[in-house]
């Protein structure tokens, strides 16, 4: 029992990290109806700048502020140079544009900071600690970093959920996603909305980058973590902030449990494909995801 709980907790906490990446996708999808292929690259890009500043001897807090400034500038440039030319175009054109942005960011970030693996040590705890003293006589070990990540993710989600559902800007973001022209007709400035949402996605990317970077080191493979966010989005729904969290938890817990309990039966390495399998099954039965907006089409 204690072992099961330990696996479950470990899985859930990894899931939180998936959620952090998925959150960035949801933000941009919600606000522009575009699947942002570059989200993973943005995570890497932010983490590279952050760790780069720290290695130059800049204090941690200042590095974070500088990186946020970089991400806001990046959002401005993306809006200016790419998106503003694509107003009212098909979503697929915008998607293609984000693929381009993704390759550019991967290359540019590494041109500036190099492609070595960088250790990110900002004093986040790395040790496992004993949790809940004992369950049925056994200790449960939990990774402290994962707990920190969970708390951070929880706080981010709470803020974003309120922001989207209760405020003028949140509503404007959703309006832009639904209909560009109608949004413009009620006086929503499309360009600043896009800039805001890309900046917020960049900041969420930074948070994800810091957490993943502390775990794996800052390296190119961070940009591939984004692939794990795909099944999370399919489970949770592309348009739901809470969905990104629940989806992440399900994927995280599911793949760890599957690895430990199914692994010995049907062979190992289940962890690598379990998430995608789960997503596929989900697509069959609930294509809009758990919390996504139901697709309504009038004929």
């Amino acid at each position: 029992m204690a072992f099961f709980l330990e696996v479950l907790t470990g899985g859930l906490l990894t899931g939180v990290l998936y959620s952090l990446v998925a959150l960035g996708f949801v933000l941009i999808f919600k606000a522009s109806g575009v699947f942002n292929f570059a989200q993973g690259a943005m995570v890497l890009f932010a983490a590279l700048f952050f760790v780069g500043f720290i290695d130059l001897g800049v204090p941690v807090v200042l590095s974070a502020i500088l990186t946020i400034a970089v991400m806001i500038l990046l959002a401005y440039l993306i809006e200016r140079l790419v998106l503003s030319h694509l107003v009212n175009q098909e979503a697929i054109s915008l998607f293609m544009a984000t693929i381009g942005i993704s390759y550019f960011l991967d290359g540019f970030g590494q041109t500036i900071w190099g492609s070595d693996i960088r250790r990110l040590d900002i004093g986040l705890p790395q040790d496992a600690f004993v949790f809940g003293a004992s369950v049925l006589g056994d200790d449960i070990f939990v990774n402290e970093l994962d707990v920190v990540a969970a708390v951070v993710a929880g706080a981010l989600v709470a803020v974003l959920a309120v922001f989207f559902s209760k405020t003028k800007i949140g509503r404007a973001l959703r309006a832009v996603a639904d209909d560009h022209q109608a949004a413009m007709s009620v006086g929503i400035p499309l360009r600043s909305i896009w800039m805001i949402v890309w900046a917020v996605a960049g900041i969420v990317g930074l948070v994800a980058g810091i957490m993943w970077g502390a775990k794996l080191g800052v390296q190119f493979s961070l940009s591939l973590v984004a692939l794990k966010a795909l099944p999370v989005l399919i489970l949770g729904g592309f348009t739901s902030v809470p969905g990104a969290i629940v989806g992440g938890l399900m994927i995280g817990a599911g793949e760890k449990l599957a690895e430990v309990y199914l692994g010995p039966v049907i062979g190992g390495a289940i962890e690598d494909w379990f998430a995608y399998m789960l997503a596929m099954i989900f697509l069959l039965f609930r294509p809009q995801g758990l919390f996504g907006e139901k697709i309504i089409e009038r004929i």
């Binding site: 003028k168 404007a172 959703r174 309006a175 996603a177 639904d178 209909d179 007709s185």
Partner: peptide, 21 residues
């Protein structure tokens, strides 16, 4: 608009609220 350009996923209330933007 001729072809109704509402924000389809949003409620009536939220749609009208965007008009207050």
């Amino acid at each position: 608009f001729q072809n109704v350009a509402l924000f389809k996923g949003m409620s009536t209330l939220d749609n009208i609220m965007t008009g207050r933007n």
